[in-house]
Amino acid sequence: MIRLIIFLLAFLGAPAWGHSISPSQLKAIFVNGKAMVSFEASNVLGHASEFEVEIYADNKIEKPYPGKFTAKPSRFWLQNDSARTVRVTIEDDERISKRLWVCTASVPPADGAALITRVCSHVKFYRMRRPDV
């Protein structure tokens, strides 16, 4: 019975293989013109793989975010069956709508028919209303 419960819990959780980021929905508040989000990137592809952090302004992933941001790390290797936290700081920009998408993209080899896979979380922003002077 316990084995059955463990099996079901494993099935209900995150996929046991692949590359993904979590959580899929993030919230951020701008404080002094900056907002920070963090997520966990994981690799259970069965082999080490390299990933790059990207930010997009649209859900079609066609418009890279035009403002400033820093990701630590911005490009990294993950061994198989490992995960790491990525922190992204986004500077306030009037071009930001109320949402962005932060992504990790696989870095493919440099020859042949290459395939880049990317997983993106949705970030919803809130701004602190400045007190009236």
């Binding site: 899929s24 992504c103 993209a105 395939l115 880049i116 896979t117 990317r118 993106c120 949705h122």
Partner: peptide, 9 residues
């Protein structure tokens, strides 16, 4: 030729 597929929340 690098192609892309994205899963977007």
């Amino acid at each position: 030729i690098a192609s892309e597929m994205t899963c977007v929340a």
